[in-house]
Design a protein around this nucleic acid. Sequence first.
DNA 1: CTGAAAGCGCTAACAT
DNA 2: ATGTTAGCGCTTTCAG
Lengths: 343, 343
Amino acid sequence: MKKTSVTIHDLARELNISASTVSRALNDNPRISQATKDKIRTLATKLGYQPNTIASNLRTQKTHTIGIVVPLINRYFFSTFISGVEDVAFEAGYNVIISQSKDLFDKENRVVHSLFSNRVDGIIVSVSMQTNKYDHFNLFANKNIPMVFFDRIAPDFKAHKILIDDFKCAHMATQHLIDQGCKRIAHLAGPTSLNTYRGRMNGYLDALKKNKLPVDEELVIYNRLTRVDGLTAIKQFLKLKNPPDAVLCGNDTSALSMIIYLREIGIRVPEDFCIVGFSNEPFSEVVTPAISTIRQPAFEMGQKAAELLIDEIEQKRIPENYQTIIMPSDLIIRESSSKKLYD
Amino acid sequence: MKKTSVTIHDLARELNISASTVSRALNDNPRISQATKDKIRTLATKLGYQPNTIASNLRTQKTHTIGIVVPLINRYFFSTFISGVEDVAFEAGYNVIISQSKDLFDKENRVVHSLFSNRVDGIIVSVSMQTNKYDHFNLFANKNIPMVFFDRIAPDFKAHKILIDDFKCAHMATQHLIDQGCKRIAHLAGPTSLNTYRGRMNGYLDALKKNKLPVDEELVIYNRLTRVDGLTAIKQFLKLKNPPDAVLCGNDTSALSMIIYLREIGIRVPEDFCIVGFSNEPFSEVVTPAISTIRQPAFEMGQKAAELLIDEIEQKRIPENYQTIIMPSDLIIRESSSKKLYD
DNA sequence: CTGAAAGCGCTAACAT
DNA sequence: ATGTTAGCGCTTTCAG
C-alpha cells in the first residue's frame, strides 16, 4: 500500500516541468500546448493519478457540492425530488450531500450548520414540520450563499422558491367533493405555520365559502398527518353528533389510514363517504378504492431546483429578481371520491 | 457582505494568542486551560466563527464523508436504506453524499470515480443491474479505503457485505405456493449476474426439486422487472399451451403490474392464480389483493452498513475478517397467494 | 500551557 | 508556452 497518493508534483518531477503546468494541462487550460498536455495525461493515467478535489476546493473556495435538507429521505415525494436534483447536479459536475431533519427543528438547525461548515456552494431546503423560525438560514443569507426553497418554504429570504399552488389544489379538490354531492366536508390539516398546509386550509375554506357552505370548526382537525394521526382524526370525525360525509386530507398517508379504517367498520367509500388525499404517493393509485389526490411533479421540481441553484452559484452575481416558480399540479380523480357513479 | 469568513487567525489576532492555541481550544484539546478556551469560544460565537471543514479535511486527510451509490434513490428499499445510513452517519459526525447509478454501468463507474476524487472516507454500494465487472472499485480497494456492499454485491472484495438470504426467501415463497396447491409455478427473474436475483432463482429451482416438481424452462422469464416488464411477462406466461397458475416475481413492482393485468382480464387472484413479490414495497400491503412478499429490513440494513463502515474507517487498521451479515427477512403472506382460503 | 513553523494538494497572479 | 511564488484555513510536530 502506498503511503500517499500521487500528486501533480509527482507528475511534474517525473517530467521535469512545473506543477502549475501539470495543473493547467489537467484542467485543459488553452495556454498549454497539446503536446505537453498529452504527455502529462499519459503519465497521469499510467501512475493512476486521481485529482484531490479537497485541495482544489480549499484553493478555489468552491466545493461543487450542494446540500439538500428534507424532512424525510424515504418519503416518495422527497426521494423523487432528490433524484431529480442528483440528475441535474451530476451532469453539471456537482455532488449532492443529503440530510434529513426528521421533521425536528433541532436536527434541521444542526444539519444546516454542518452543511455550512462543509462549505457547500448552495442548499435546497424543505423545512421541518416544527420549523417556525428561520434564523439558522441567515448563515447562508448573510454570505449570499444561494438557497432554493421548495414545498415548505422559509419566508422572507432572497431565494428562489419552487412550489405548487396549494390553495388552488385544495380549492379544486373541495369543489370536486361538493360537485360529487358531499354536504359536510371535513379537513385534516397539517401545521399552518407551514405555507403548504396553510394554503391547503385556505383553499378548502374558500371553496366552502364560494359555495355558500357553512364553515364548521368541528370539521377541521390539525395534526402531523401520520398514519396514526389519520386514524385518530377519522374516529374523532365520526364521533360528532353531525359527522362529515367527506374528508380532504393534508396528505395521502392519512387518507390511506382513513380508507382502511372505514373499510374495516363497513362504511363504503365512496358511496357513503368520500376521501381526497394530497401528493399522489405510489400506493394511492393501487389501493382499493384508489385515492383521489393531487399530483405534484416531484422529479421535475428537483431538476428545476438544481438548475436555479447552480445558475445562481455560477453567475456569481446576485439575481436581481428571485423567482417563485409555481409548478403545474392537478387533481387526479379516482374511486375514493367518485360518488356520483353510485348515485 | 464580508469578503471572507472569520478564521482562527482572526480570533488569534484579536486575543493576541497564536492560531494553534485557537485551533486546540476549539477542538477541546486538554492541553489548553479552561480560561483560554472560554475566552476563545466566547469570541468565536461573537464573531460568528464557523470552522472551515474543507481546510481541516485537507490537513487531516479525512473528510468525515461517506459516499452511497445505489441504483435509484427513489425506490423505497433504497431510500429507506439511505435514511438508515444518514441516521447513524450524522450522529457519528459524518456527511453522506448520495449518487445513483440509474442502473447504468457507465454512470456507476463515473460516480465511483467522482466519490474517490472527493476523498470520501468510505463508500456503501449496491451495484447497478448492468454491472458485471468490478474494476472501478479497485480505486478504493487498492488504497484500502473501506467499502461496504449491500443487497447487490460486488464479489471478491475485502469488504463487509450486508445481505438477506435471497435463496432461503425465494425457497420459502415457492414452498408456500406449493403448499397453497399451486401446480405450475413460474418465476420472473432479474439478471442472474447479480447475486440477489441469482439467489432467488436458485431458491425457486431448489424448492421445485425438493418437491419433485418438474422444472420447465418456459416458466422462467428474465428481464429488468419494471412495471412494463411485469406486464410483458404475464402476457407471455398466459400464452403458453400449458400456462402456470402462480408466479414468483423478482420484485413487487412486476408483481403489482401482473395483479392489475389479471384483474383487468378477469382472472381472480388468488383463487385462479397466485402471485408473490419481493421487497415489501409500501404499496404491496394496500393493493387489492394485497401482495405476499418478502420483508427486507432496509432501515436497519442502512444503519448496520454505516456502523460497519465507520468502525472500519476509525480503527484505521484493516479488519482481519470481513463479515457477511445476513439480515433477518421473512415471508409476509397476504391475499395474493392465500388460495387455500378459497378452496 | 502556549507558540512557531511547516505543509496538506492545488490554483492563480505575476513573471519570463 | 511555461515557471515562480504565495496562499486557501487548518492541524501538528517540535520547542519552550
